[in-house]
């Protein structure tokens, strides 16, 4: 297939910055590949993609990709992305965010972006912990798991992000893990093609903090446990809450269509002022 003997993903990456900063076996690198494979499959123009991320290990991903990107503040990736998409709806805006970034500090932005169904593709890298700051418990840390802020084990019930976002009104929501890499690629492709808010939660491994704190010392041990704990959605529907404890349910949680946020703005602008944008500016003709 390829004439050159170079890894197929390197052509999209800032090679001068490689090897990347992620720890050995961190899932972030594989998620970069899965995104690029999905983008190829969807036949998208890489030059038309703008990436937005917050703060965290996972939010460093756009920095390694050779495209336009905004590295914003913690938890606010979706707010920046909303502004970007509304100002220039021809861009394909992709958001990379972590579980802490999206669900704790950015939790409100997440549910409201989903509610408004704005055409963004959000890839939420859920490693069940705050990786960058040294292993604190996150809103998705499983009950009983250990972290620097839970030396006796986490007592709280975690969020189920893919279900939460589907319930909040997203038109596409799915969860896969880094072990089901083919399904992950297909889900990201569907998310990119969906003309509405698309959320792909990727359950992934952070061997350095989650692994070390939870007696899973190697990336392969983490991947094996993740694989063993995976249940397909169709099977999960026939299981009791008790049986599902500690399991990762994978599959699609929303795949529908409804009115999109920027389309709504265009529509009301044309209706009320006869033009596609309500901006009043001396430079209006250049917009």
């Amino acid at each position: 297939m390829s004439e050159s003997k170079q890894n197929r993903f390197l052509q999209y990456m800032r090679e001068d910055r490689l090897p990347h900063i992620f720890c050995p076996g961190c899932g972030n690198g594989a998620i970069i590949n899965a995104f690029l494979a999905a983008m190829e499959k969807a036949g998208m123009d890489f030059d038309n993609i703008a990436m937005v991320s917050g703060i965290g290990c996972s939010s460093r991903i756009p920095g390694y990709l050779d495209c336009d990107s905004l590295h914003t503040t913690h938890g606010r990736a979706l707010s920046f992305a909303t502004g970007l998409k509304t100002a220039n709806k021809d861009l394909d805006v992709v958001v990379f965010t972590g579980d802490g970034d999206a669900a704790s500090i950015g939790g409100n932005h997440l549910i409201h972006a989903a509610r408004r169904n704005i055409n963004l593709t959000v890839i939420c890298i859920n490693n069940n912990i705050y990786g960058m700051t040294g292993g604190q418990i996150s809103p998705t840390s499983p009950k009983g798991s250990f972290g620097t802020t839970a030396p006796y084990g986490n007592q709280d019930t975690p969020f189920k992000l893919a279900e939460l976002v589907a319930a909040a009104g997203a038109t596409y929501s799915a969860r896969w893990t880094t072990v089901q890499i083919e399904n992950l690629v297909l889900a990201i492709k569907e998310g990119l093609e969906n003309p509405g808010f698309s959320f792909i939660e990727v359950a992934t491994q952070c061997p350095t903090y989650f692994g070390r704190k939870n007696k899973l010392k190697t990336p392969t041990a983490m991947a094996a446990v993740m694989k063993a704990n995976t249940v397909f959605k169709s099977a999960a529907e026939r299981m009791s809450a008790k049986e599902l404890e500690g399991k990762i349910v994978v599959g699609e949680f929303a795949n529908t269509t409804k009115d999109e946020f920027t389309e709504n703005i265009d529509k009301i602008s044309v209706e009320k002022s006869g033009k596609k944008t309500v901006i009043n500016s001396a430079y209006e003709t250049e917009l």
Binding site: M1, S2, K5, Q6, N7, R8, F9, L10, M13, L18, P19, H20, F22, P24, G25, C26, G27, N28, G29, A30, I32, N33, A34, A37, E40, K41, T178, I181, E182, V185
Partner: peptide, 28 residues
Amino acid sequence: TCEVACPDQAITVDLPENWWMKEGNDVN
């Protein structure tokens, strides 16, 4: 699979084409 799963973009699988690759040039 290994090409996509390698977190460090270290693997290149460069073998003669396979049967499914002939359809629509899909490499994945």
